[in-house]
């Protein structure tokens, strides 16, 4: 599992790769917190390299989503979500809330 944060003018891009389960989800929460501590609340999560995303990872994602959107200060948008993960998001009922884009460029451009 790797997490890489890139700072852009409009937003931060958090690129996720590998397996996100109960053991690794805290690192995702930490990545959101680091961006927010740096005053950045507009975040694109690049999901293209994600192989597995459990309910614990979804909780971490939703924590970031809620915190970033508090007081209308920002948003979390997803890019390149693999098909299997999209199905899991559909099941959890989060696809209709979180804005999702086919690739990172489009997601960054949406801010």
């Amino acid at each position: 599992m790797t997490i890489e944060t890139t700072e852009l003018k409009r937003c931060n891009v958090i690129k996720l790769e590998g397996r996100f389960d109960s053991a690794t989800a805290p690192a995702l929460e930490e990545a959101f917190r680091e961006s927010m501590n740096g005053g950045v609340y507009r975040i694109v999560v690049d999901m293209s390299g994600v192989q597995f995303f459990s309910s614990a990872a979804i909780r971490a994602l939703l924590m970031g989503y809620k915190e970033c959107r508090r007081w209308n200060r920002g948003d979390v948008r997803l890019a390149a979500v693999p098909e299997r993960i999209t199905q899991v998001f559909d099941l959890a009922g989060i696809s209709s809330f979180i804005e999702t884009y086919p690739d990172t460029t489009k997601a960054v451009g949406s801010f």
């Binding site: 809620k66 099941l91 009922g93």
Partner: peptide, 24 residues
Amino acid sequence: MPDTEAPLESRDIGGLGLFFMREL
């Protein structure tokens, strides 16, 4: 059981693991 229809801001996200076990 989680309320997967509720707005995310007000949603209690516990119970999602068991929900996935049943649904999948």
